[in-house]
Amino acid sequence: MADPSRPSPVPGPGAGFAFMGLGASLLAAGSYLGLFVAPRESYMGDVYRIMYAHVPTAWNTMLAFTFAFGAALAFLLSANFKWDARHEAAVEVGVVMAGLLCLQGSIWARPTWGVWWDWDPRLTTTAVMFFAFVGILALRRFVEDPVKRATWSAVATIIAYADVPIVYYSVRWWNSLHQMQSSPETVSAVFVIPLRTNAFGVLFFMTGLITLRTRIASLRLRQEMAPPLPEPAPVLAPGAAR
C-alpha cells in the first residue's frame, strides 16, 4: 500500500458507464423480444408484458439491498470507509428500484386485480422495506460526522434487512393477493428468454449505477475527511512594513 497520507486517486467513471451500456443493450434486446416477439399470454393478453420490467426489477431490488446489507456488515467489521461508500450507493439505488417496483406493480395490478393497491402481505412488506431504506437515507443526511453517520446507518441497514427475506417469503407464508413466485415450470419457455435477458440487463444497469454512486460517495468522503486547510495568512495592514 502506498503512503496513507497521500491516498491514491479514486478510479474514473469508465467502469460504471460500461456496465450501464451493457445493461442498456441487454434491456433493449430483452424488451424487443418481450414486446414484439413473444406471444400474448392466454388470459392476460398484452397486459402480462409488464412482467418483463416488473420481475427483473423485483429480483434486482432485493439484490441491491442484499449488497447494502453486506456492505454495512463489512464496514462495521473492517472499519474501512470504502464499504461505507458502497453501502450508501447500494441503499440509494435500491430505494429508487423499490419505488419503481411499487409503481410497476400498481400499473399491473389495476387491469389484472382491479385495484391499484391493497394491503396484502407482499405489498405491505414491500412498502415497509421501501420506507425503512428511505429512512436510512434520511438518517445519513441528518448526521454530519462521517464516522457516526457510517456506523449508525450500517446498524440501521442490518436491522432493516430483516424485512427483505420476509418480502420474499410473504407470498408463501400468508394468504395474499399477489401470486407466488413463478418458476420455469409455471412460465412458458418463450416467455423465459426475454425475462432472463431483461433480468441481466437490469442487473448490469444497476451495477453501473451503484459503481458510479460509490465513486461520488468516495469523493465526498475524501473531501469531508481531508485534513483542515492551513490557517489563512493574517491580513496585513495597508502600508505595513514588509
Binding site: P4, F81, K82, S218
Partner: peptide, 19 residues
C-alpha cells in the same frame, strides 16, 4: 479508493460490536 480507510480515527474493535 481503498486508502480513505486510513483517514478516520475509527477503532475496529468498537464497530465490530455494533455489527
Amino acid at each position: 479508493m481503498s486508502d480513505i480507510a486510513a483517514l478516520p480515527p475509527l477503532s475496529r474493535s468498537r464497530t465490530k460490536w455494533f455489527a
